[in-house]
Design a protein around this nucleic acid. Structure first.
Lengths: 109, 109
DNA sequence: AAATAATACCTCGAAGTTCTATGTATAGTA
DNA sequence: TACTATACATAGAACTTCGAGGTATTATTT
């Protein structure tokens, strides 16, 4: 049993695998793509993003939005892509484990 | 984003839905039925079990094992069965959310 | 017979996560 | 003008899980 699922990292890395994004966008995209299952808080995302940057999993640059506001875009590095593979495997394993336990109890249909 | 997955509760409740069990047995059964994905620690299980008991989700009684040792058996209550339904739904929702995000990125195959 | 492993219960403190609350600031809308 | 949305950030609280340790009995191995 891992100390935590830490699937926040998985979700963020997954989004960034498709295209570079800025923090606020990650939150809104995540809500959209998860069928409104996830409402990640800013207090959760930003520290995670900074942690991924420290680990070298993402790189960051600032760009001015068409609106005139500054945004910090994050882009996956090679290391980040490796981390994504690992995290995906970890999710598959965990999910499979839970499903195995659930299906081992016939009473639940 | 819920504060934690807390799927430990789901797993324990699921096992107890099939038959009453004692703590040590829950740990070994969990490892078996999850294809060795989960190795729940005693420091995790016992507090969770006591919490479920406090919440009225399980009841507990002592019985002597054929070996002569005492065991504390836990059994689901009606409240526990309701909690199990809720936790199962929460897992389905969470799992579905993650899969939706993963499958929204074609690059991952 | 003695040592070790397995069974069976338990608790405490550390580590890790996520949230709540709060802060700053700009742009758009009612 | 006030409110909402956008966009960044951090600090502290709450919660989960683990690691490490403790106690004790039974079974197995040396």
């Amino acid at each position: 049993m891992k100390k935590s699922m830490d699937h926040t990292q998985l979700l963020v890395l997954t989004l960034l695998a498709a295209e570079e994004m800025y923090g606020y966008q990650i939150i809104t995209e995540l809500e959209k793509r998860s069928d409104h299952t996830f409402a990640m808080k800013e207090g959760t995302l930003y520290p995670v993003l900074h942690g991924l940057w420290k680990d070298g999993a993402v790189e960051c640059y600032e760009k001015e939005a068409p609106t005139g506001r500054m945004r910090k875009y994050y882009r996956l590095t090679r290391k980040g892509r490796e981390k994504l593979k690992e995290e995906t495997a970890r999710w598959r394993s965990y999910s499979h484990g839970v499903e195995a336990v659930l299906s081992s109890v016939p009473a639940l249909g």
